[in-house]
């Protein structure tokens, strides 16, 4: 085989190997990309922590039903519920909902909750300023905790949304 072909093969292989690594990095990059995409489009309805203080004008003409759904992962031995199942809110109004969670075991438990808003595309309008789901919670044996979620609905929420569901699922993460 001639030297020229050798060189060309080497060049081709080098370019393709770079492509392989780029694609691998792309796969890894999909993780943050997906989060960003979810934030924009609400693919999985996950809320983000809002850092800025939001000062919306309260739209007293509109009323949205806000529903709080609590769930437990398999093997998560907590009692967990929202203190109210659903409330009516005006867009722009700061709402605080409290939850009660008790550790039913005689051991210390760490648990984390995952938030999920449905319908998905509305998630961009649900501004979650505080949520116990942003941090891991530690429960002493038998401990009962009162936990809070604070949120504001952006008044630009499209008209057709009348009911929003805020779901929280606790998972035992002790191990």
């Amino acid at each position: 085989m001639n030297v020229d072909l050798e060189q060309r093969n080497k060049k081709t292989v080098r370019a393709l190997v770079i492509l392989v690594f780029v694609m691998f990095l792309f796969a890894v990059a999909l993780i943050p990309l997906y989060d960003i995409l979810c934030e924009i489009t609400g693919i999985n309805g996950k809320t983000k922590q809002e850092s800025a203080v939001l000062d919306y004008k309260i739209d007293t003409q509109r009323e949205i039903t806000l529903e709080f759904i609590t769930s437990l992962g398999a093997g998560t031995d907590l009692a967990f519920k929202a203190d109210k199942y659903e409330i009516k809110v005006h867009p722009g109004e700061v709402v605080t909902m409290s939850f009660t969670a008790s550790n039913k075991t005689d051991q210390r438990m760490t648990a984390k909750a995952n938030p999920s808003v449905t319908p998905g595309p509305s998630v961009g309008y649900v501004k979650n300023t505080e949520c116990f789901c942003f941090d891991t919670q530690v429960f002493e044996a038998g401990e009962t905790k009162h936990l809070e979620v604070q949120l504001v609905i952006n008044p630009t929420l499209p008209e057709h949304y009348k009911r929003l569901t805020f779901g929280l699922t606790f998972f035992d993460t002790t191990n």
């Binding site: 393709l16 492509l19 392989v20 690594f21 694609m23 691998f24 796969a27 890894v28 993780i31």
Partner: peptide, 14 residues
């Protein structure tokens, strides 16, 4: 193949 195999490898590694 070159475009997708590394992506699959990434997914199963995760």
């Amino acid at each position: 193949l070159i475009a997708i195999m590394p992506v699959f490898a990434g997914a199963v590694t995760m």
